[in-house]
């Protein structure tokens, strides 16, 4: 069967000022699969993730070279609006970052901006998103309460629900469980497993077991380079590159 790649990067270089954070990264992300990006801190994995929905635009003095194609279109082409890209490629951050608004308004924030006005449609969307994020049962009676009152794990699932409400094609996750306890982490991992039926998920993680548990593909980064990209099983049992093996087996990093 022909593989369906939703995002492809071609020879991507990225610079913070004079510092080259990524060099020559070429990688294809398959649709409706989970891809994990691993590597030691500062290896460029988060930088790549933030390039995929143009979040790095927000940092002054950065420069991208090469192409990043989303459904065949270069998202760094001059006529592309980053706002539209971000509507279709959602993101979940390392630290849960709900808005200081009610749970309900956290979910409806983006859909309302996108032009959805109908009250019934919005309420259905809130319920569906929270159910998808397996948070509905915990919060259905406190939707008008501030999201800040939720626990860290609940906040992170709220952030996932908030991203889902836009019905994105891709969800980027930047170490989404690193600020959470083991139980919350397990819940999020379960969630990722159910979400991949409908969404393409690209997740940065520093936890190799997590990558092994949840992903189909894994990319290993080191010093701004993509060292190896392979099926997760292959990476963790019989990697092609020596450096990958050294990292996986804990010999450095």
């Amino acid at each position: 069967m022909e593989k369906d790649f939703i995002i492809r990067t071609k020879n991507v270089d990225f610079f913070y000022g004079a510092f080259r954070a990524l060099s020559d990264v070429t990688v294809d992300f398959e649709k409706n699969k989970v891809t994990a990006l691993i590597g030691p801190s500062g290896c460029g994995k988060s930088t790549l993730l933030r390039l995929l929905n143009r979040m790095n635009d927000l940092i002054d003095g950065t420069r991208v070279e090469g192409e990043i194609l989303f459904e065949g279109r270069n998202i760094y082409a001059p006529d592309v609006d980053p706002v539209e890209i971000r509507q279709r490629i959602g993101m979940v951050f390392q630290k849960p970052n709900p808005f200081p608004k009610s749970i309900f308004n956290n979910i409806t924030y983006a859909p309302k901006l996108a032009g959805i006005r109908d009250r019934g449609e919005i309420e259905a969307l809130v319920e569906a998103s929270l159910k998808q994020a397996v948070l509905w049962d915990e919060v259905k009676d406190i939707l008008t309460k501030s999201a800040m009152t939720l626990s860290g794990g609940q906040q992170q699932r709220l952030c996932i629900a908030r991203a889902l409400a836009m019905k994105p094609d891709v969800i980027l996750m930047d170490e989404p469980t690193s600020a959470l306890d083991p139980i919350s982490t397990a819940k999020i991992e379960e969630l990722i497993d159910t979400l991949k039926k409908h969404y393409t998920i690209i997740i940065v993680t520093h936890n190799m077991q997590q990558a092994a548990r949840i992903s189909e593909y894994t990319g290993f980064f080191y010093l701004g380079k993509l060292i190896e990209f392979n099926a997760t099983e292959k990476i963790f049992t019989n990697p092609d590159v020596k450096q990958t093996e050294d990292y996986i087996t804990g010999r450095f990093g």
Partner: peptide
């Protein structure tokens, strides 16, 4: 995905 939420129609207005 079946449903796409974001008509780009109102981008100009935004």
């Amino acid at each position: 995905n079946e449903e796409i939420l974001h008509p780009v129609m109102n981008m100009k207005w935004r």
